[in-house]
């Protein structure tokens, strides 16, 4: 993985590519590619490193989340140096992510994971399409657009693929609420029971 990263950096010095370590035993590290350079990096991977097959494109929704971090800092109080532990809460803004799994058939080399992240989850959701580089990404990018709302600039035919065209939501997002069409339940409970009571009282 580091060899690939060095090759990309040598060929495209200005490209924004970082290595994201996976600390688990599987050690499936991935490359985070800046959206503006994604197309150039993908073309380099295909043309120079032989990554000729994109097997999988997935979307991931990362809502804004808070991370608690413990910082240890040294403080000098009345001439005595002590260690003070401090918990800092840091907010990571939300974003959407497209994950590409590419293989090299010609070199028989395994999976290379690319992650391309959008600016946020609301208005800055465009990333360049890699369909012009890997044709097999076509339908899967459409699926990521349909279910997550990631817009792929330069995609030849960016339409919904699973839901109907009139559909407005992106159902795989974490904050999606499915339509309220519960029905008869033999033992309604909790919030369903509240809804059921409201409906029967109204009728």
């Amino acid at each position: 993985m580091t060899g690939i990263l060095e090759a990309i950096r040598a060929a495209l010095p200005s490209a924004g590519v970082e290595l994201l370590q996976n600390p688990s035993p599987c050690a499936q590290h991935s490359l985070i590619v800046c959206p503006k350079d994604a197309r150039a990096v993908a073309e380099f991977l295909r043309n120079s490193l032989g990554y000729d097959f994109c097997s999988n494109v997935s979307g991931v929704d990362w809502p804004a989340r808070k991370v608690k971090e413990t910082i240890v800092r040294k403080e000098t109080v009345e001439g005595v140096e002590t260690e003070v532990k401090e918990t800092v809460e840091r907010e990571i803004p939300g974003f959407l992510e497209a994950v590409y799994h590419v293989f090299s058939i010609s070199k028989r080399s395994g999976v290379l994971t690319l992650r391309v992240r959008t600016g946020n989850r609301t208005d800055d959701v465009s990333i360049p399409s890699l369909t012009p580089v890997w044709k097999s990404a076509d339908f899967q990018e459409r699926e990521a657009y349909d279910l997550f709302g990631i817009r792929f600039d330069g995609h030849p035919d960016l339409r919904r693929i699973l839901m109907w065209d009139e559909f407005a939501d992106h159902p795989m997002r974490k904050d999606y609420n499915p339509p309220d069409d519960f029905e008869y339940e033999p033992t309604p409970h909790d919030e369903i029971l509240v809804k059921v009571k409201a409906r029967t009282e109204a009728a």
Partner: peptide
């Protein structure tokens, strides 16, 4: 019809009349 969030209407009330809810 295909609506923005669900099918419209979500059911045909003339034929779909589920039993009133009851507990076991």
């Amino acid at each position: 019809a295909y609506g923005a969030h669900d099918l419209e209407p979500a059911l045909n009330p003339r034929i779909f009349r589920p039993d009133p809810p009851r507990r076991a």
